[in-house]
């Protein structure tokens, strides 16, 4: 089933920018399936999840960069020896997370100001 985060509506209603992170690919075992979602507001709030907590902090940082640049990006997480002390998935799989700005149409943005 698809995931909807009610927080997104609240943040947008408040005039915040929102970045949406979606699991778009899973290889092997992963804590959350394709379609799992997390959102980050320009005020620094976080809702939902893309892994069982393994990579959320890194996605959070990337989402803030995406909001600043207004450019989407694809993140890939797995577990490797080099990553043993870095963020990664404990269960051995690999996930790809697409992060994009949920930017308002230009007219809307002007009105929000």
């Amino acid at each position: 089933m698809n995931e909807w985060l009610p927080e997104i509506d609240q943040w947008r209603a408040r005039g915040d920018q929102v970045a949406l992170a979606t699991v778009v690919k899973v290889e092997g075992s992963a804590p959350r399936p394709v379609g799992a979602r997390m959102a980050v507001s320009s005020s620094g709030e976080l809702a939902g999840s893309v892994s069982g907590g393994c990579v959320e902090t890194d996605v959070f940082t990337a989402a803030q960069e995406v909001l600043a640049s207004n450019e989407p990006k694809l993140l890939r997480y797995g577990i490797t020896d080099e990553m043993a002390w870095d963020v990664g998935l404990a269960c051995g799989g690999t996930i790809e997370v697409f992060v994009e700005p949920l930017s308002e149409p230009p007219g809307e943005k002007d009105r929000a100001r």
Binding site: P101, S103, P105
Partner: peptide, 15 residues
Amino acid sequence: MSTATFYDQVRTAVT
């Protein structure tokens, strides 16, 4: 169309 417009259209369709 902006990402937000696509998102809103999907939400409307799902509703």
